[in-house]
């Protein structure tokens, strides 16, 4: 199945920075929405912002209308996504590889708690590996280490779960 881009993706001005501030804000929001939906659809956690990359080609380089995203615009989008906790750079100083969360940490924590309650896991012990790998039909299947750690840390802070650590790394939780 192919990802179906919204109509605005075929709109040429969408690929350049809009001068009016309100329009620009909306433009960035739309872009973020497209990126998150696309990555979720394709189950991509790591996105390479390199022009030769297939995913990059598909999202940011629209061959149908012969438009490629403006670099400054892309940078603004990424910055905004980082601010909203939707992504982060995988390695410090490397601006080409980003980790996409699909949902921000707060949204993921709600999802996880919802799943715990729905599946009657309350009171049981779960390993992080188990959360990532044992439920292929759940949205968080294959969730990246870094994201799941952040989610669990947040849940621990909210006193929804207790984290069990080994060598400073979360290995399991009690819910």
């Amino acid at each position: 199945m192919e990802f179906k881009f919204p109509k605005i993706h075929d709109f040429p001005p969408f690929y350049t920075k809009q001068p009016h501030e309100g329009t620009y804000k909306a433009q960035i929001e739309q872009w973020i929405n497209i990126i998150l939906k696309y990555c979720e659809f394709k189950h991509i956690w790591k996105l390479e912002l390199n022009e030769s990359n297939g995913n990059y080609q598909e999202i940011f380089n629209n061959k149908k209308i012969e438009r490629k995203i403006n670099d400054n615009l892309l940078q603004d989008i990424i910055n905004e996504m980082i601010k909203l906790e939707y992504c982060k750079y995988i390695n410090k100083g490397d601006f080409k590889n980003i980790l996409i969360y699909w949902k921000n940490i707060n949204e993921w924590s709600l999802k996880l708690i919802e799943w715990i309650n729905k599946s009657g896991q309350n009171g049981s012990i779960l390993t992080v590996y188990e959360i990532q790998n044992n439920w292929p039909n759940e949205e968080f299947y294959g969730i990246d280490d870094e994201i799941i750690y952040k989610v669990l840390e947040k849940l621990e802070k909210d006193k929804k779960v207790a984290c069990i650590r080994e060598n400073n790394e979360i290995v399991g939780i009690k819910v």
Binding site: I125, Y129, I164
Partner: peptide, 15 residues
Amino acid sequence: IKITSHDKAILQLKL
């Protein structure tokens, strides 16, 4: 949430 020795044992098994 309190983590008991039981919990730790189960975690070890699961790990």
